[in-house]
Nucleic acid binder design. Sequence first.
DNA 1: TATCTGACAATTGTCAACAACTTTTAGGAT
DNA 2: ATCCTAAAAGTTGTTGACAATTGTCAGATA
Lengths: 229, 229
Amino acid sequence: MENTTSNQTAQNDLQVLRTSSLTGALERELEHLILTGELKPGERLNEIQLSSRFGTSRGPLREATRSLQAKGLVDAIRNRGVFVRSISPKEALEIYDIRAALFGLAGRLLTDMVTDAMLARLNEFLDEMDEIAQQRDFDRYYPVNLQFHDFLIRSTNSSMLAQEYKSLVNRLHLCRARGLVQAGGLAVSNHEHREMVDALASGNRERAQEAFFRHVERSKQRFTTTLEK
Amino acid sequence: MENTTSNQTAQNDLQVLRTSSLTGALERELEHLILTGELKPGERLNEIQLSSRFGTSRGPLREATRSLQAKGLVDAIRNRGVFVRSISPKEALEIYDIRAALFGLAGRLLTDMVTDAMLARLNEFLDEMDEIAQQRDFDRYYPVNLQFHDFLIRSTNSSMLAQEYKSLVNRLHLCRARGLVQAGGLAVSNHEHREMVDALASGNRERAQEAFFRHVERSKQRFTTTLEK
DNA sequence: TATCTGACAATTGTCAACAACTTTTAGGAT
DNA sequence: ATCCTAAAAGTTGTTGACAATTGTCAGATA
């Protein structure tokens, strides 16, 4: 039994390596370590240590870190090494603005392609989040909230937009000062969600864009206020 | 004489290598080759050929291409090589939208920080472009138009925004179908520019955002029409 | 003629070794 | 004790070699 499972995983690994690459796998692994916080902002990525940990040589690992550098997740200093990037509050605010702009675009695009089925699904989300918000259960609210936003972005059918948006969210995770930012405004947040969905249903592009934009901007403000104390 | 200059460039190269890296230099060089069209969309980047051309080994070159891959300028296929990315019309349209959203954000941000000096500089740009447009001199119009947009983006003081915007513009260059798109609408374009500056001067955030947004959207429409014939 | 097969060439994937640089540490001078 | 210096250790930068894969082409077969 143990034999078959290990054979299976070995086959999976091979399957992965046929289409993807060792570098790509390492990159995903490192990205995971960074985003989960196992590798913390400012921490150095030791090539020897990491490559021996993953059982590869330094070459593919270096390629993976170059990719992460281009994505803005690490900084590289020549002859010193690569370090998990640390996003300053100033940079975080800049990213919030860009995220707001992209989310606003999502709202604008969705207005012209929204269906009854989509509105129904969105209202399901709203109801679910309302229920959770009333119980002040942040641990349950957070993932659904994430799903809600993901659903909206993916519904635009713009893979470029989805990719850019994800990249921004990832970088935002690297801001140390970003604790449980929105722990306070659960009900508030969902009120904004309703405004967004209503704007979509109204068919008014500019209104939807503005509603989506402001939702992220308010989240930015909540971040600012928690920052000041 | 020849000796001193070659010594100087050699010193410059060394100076560059102290702060930057060989990989970084290679990446810039490759990016240049791609954006100028010396390496055309779909073309393969031969590691041996390129590394011998630049006088390095394949290691740093591979790291450079990984970075370009993350930036969306090349595609890599395992065991086949990396290829200059070819942006489809569909993807180009998606990028136009994102660019519009970011440019709209620039307008919104600038509204709150615009100075008399900045407005004066912008009006200089407008007058200059008007003059060139009347002469139908596209070769002169294009770089000034670029400068104008660059000036606006940089004036927001958001390095993140500038970086993202530049990345999008770069990728747009990889669309084969994008010839001299806006060769037609010189005067039209500058009329839109005036609307943008006027909106900035009005102090109305939403109006400025919309004006900036629509400017890129109209440029997208011009792209679409040239695409259809 | 068209298609399949297998050897050969070209190219990419990975690795280990060496060179260059940085940081640490130990020793000595003040 | 403090500061400087130089050797040592640790880490990154780069290279060339080898393995694995893909592409090419001549010859055999139907």
